[in-house]
């Protein structure tokens, strides 16, 4: 115990605990919003990339390739520092949510696309012959069947998103990493803040993985 009390100054956590926890809350809600945007955009792009109109398909392909080919940091910089040049002045947090959302949208689109492709054409044709509308085909035939296939990679993607959200600290969003560096700067302590931040990210990510396993069990039955 002596080593533990010498190595780690536990009193620091009393003082900075609330700051770290509020950072964790910000990280969690930014990631939740970004996931919702990402799933929306991803679903739209995945549906449109099967469009019979070639330019629409090219646009979707281009969007996916750009999102998957650029670092998220450069996208955040374009939005945050480049935005004002064309009159787009957004607060850092909004840039964070939007940036992460449209970035992860490219990855979700790819996951959904592979999900849609897994459904045999025969089923779609059969559904159409039975008089189902294309909306009904998507919600009743395609989505329920592809859920089993897309839930594991989607959860994986959310976990990657949580870790990418640490970058928002660079554009001054007060999330977990930002608050941790603030603690480092104010206390000159290195060990305590970084142990805490690693643990808090780990807890958040384990939580998401746990929810993912629950969802997987539900849809399997």
């Amino acid at each position: 115990m002596d080593i533990l009390t010498n190595l780690v100054n536990w009193e620091l956590y009393l003082e900075y605990g609330p700051l770290l926890l509020s950072g964790l809350a910000t990280t969690a809600y930014i990631c939740a919003l970004a996931t919702v945007i990402g799933i929306g955009v991803g679903l739209a792009v995945a549906l449109l990339s099967a469009s019979p109109v070639p330019p629409v398909r090219w646009l979707c392909r281009g969007y996916i390739e750009i999102m998957r080919g650029t670092p998220i940091l450069i996208l955040l910089f374009i939005l945050y520092y480049g935005g004002p040049e064309i009159g787009l002045r957004l607060p850092a947090e909004t840039v964070g949510v939007l940036g992460l959302g449209i970035y992860v949208g490219g990855y979700f689109a790819e996951i959904f696309r592979s999900g849609f492709q897994s459904i045999p054409v025969g089923q779609i044709e059969a559904a159409r012959i039975m008089g189902l509308s294309s909306g009904q085909i998507i919600t009743r035939i395609k989505i329920p069947q592809m859920l089993v296939l897309i839930v594991p990679p989607s959860i994986n993607q959310v976990i990657i998103l949580i870790k990418e959200s640490a970058l928002l600290s660079i554009i001054t969003v007060a999330e977990l990493t930002k608050n941790t560096t603030q603690m480092v700067n104010e206390t000159y302590a290195v060990v305590e803040p970084y142990i805490a931040v690693a643990l808090l990210y780990w807890i958040l990510i384990e939580g998401v993985a746990h929810i993912g396993r629950k969802i997987e069990q539900r849809i399997k039955v």
Binding site: I162, K163, E164, S165, A166, L167, S169, T177, T180, T181, Y194, V197, A198, Y201, W202, I205
Partner: peptide
Amino acid sequence: RGTPILVQLLI
């Protein structure tokens, strides 16, 4: 694999 690469760089 479980921590952000930004945090790893800083550490």
